[in-house]
């Protein structure tokens, strides 16, 4: 893990000193703001209806709208992590310092993950607004944010892996976007295969189903195990990929 802290700080600095993170942050918050507006309008118009879900559940769990931007944002956040360093040659200076490959991969990945969390952070204000007119169960909110963090962590790990596998940022972004769309489509299979093992498989990887659980405060260990696998396997491959083009 040598070198983690300075590389992590530099990556965060690098993300926010260029326009990319700010553009993504703005676009993301525009979509989330629109989403929140629609939900609030919906509940305001149907306040007398007995429903089994409030605005928090609707915001995090009963729609795929918040997660569609992630299919684009996560690849864009991670595409430059290794690909750009390899293209510009800065990776040579980086890896000839006394740092370990694992430390480098984790530092870059964590910088992207922290940026992702920062992107979600302003949405807490929505919940503060809801609390002005009703009750918010903050344990459910915590579970929901755990859910979105785990989903993003998996997506970013896939992006980190593809960035370590190519020198082209564009190719890295396209490859990870394709992987994320494939994962997403597999989740939608839950609604196509209504029964049987395929339905179970698709439901297991479905971000919609996962977030539906988390948004109700259900923290299922099976889901956490799946997310941990989705994080650890790509990161392991990323470490091996970096070692492969160094030592191969």
């Amino acid at each position: 893990m040598r070198g983690f802290w300075p590389i992590f700080k530099r990556e965060l600095f690098s993300l926010f000193v260029t326009p990319l993170a700010w553009v993504l942050l703005t676009a993301f918050l525009l979509v989330q703001g629109l989403h929140f507006f629609l939900i609030v309008t919906h509940f305001a118009n149907q306040a007398d209806l007995a429903v089994d879900a409030g605005p928090v559940q609707s915001f995090f769990g009963q729609t795929i709208l918040p997660y569609l931007p992630l299919l684009l944002i996560c690849p864009l956040l991670t595409m430059r992590l290794f690909a750009e360093e390899r293209r510009s040659g800065t990776i040579e200076a980086l890896l000839t310092a006394p740092v370990g490959t694992t430390g480098v991969v984790l530092a870059k990945y964590m910088a992207a993950l922290v940026t992702y969390v920062i992107m979600w952070a302003p949405t807490l204000l929505y919940l503060v607004l809801i609390q002005q007119t009703g009750e918010v169960d903050w344990r459910v909110v915590a579970a929901s944010y755990l859910g979105v963090t785990l989903v993003g962590a998996g997506y970013l790990a896939i992006g980190t892996m593809t960035s370590a596998m190519t020198q082209s940022q564009v190719l890295a972004a396209v490859l990870s976007a394709m992987a994320l769309v494939a994962l997403f489509m597999l989740g939608i299979g839950e609604f196509i295969f209504t029964d049987g093992p395929l339905n179970a498989l698709c439901a297991h990887v479905s971000v919609w189903t996962q977030m539906n659980d988390f948004s109700r405060g259900i923290v299922d260990l099976r889901r956490i195990t799946f997310d941990a696998t989705l994080i650890l396997v790509p990161l392991f491959v990323a470490v091996r990929a970096v070692d492969a083009w160094r030592w191969g």
Binding site: F13, S14, G89, T90, I91, A93
Partner: peptide
Amino acid sequence: TSPLYPEM
């Protein structure tokens, strides 16, 4: 090529 981070 003295690769450096141009933004720093």
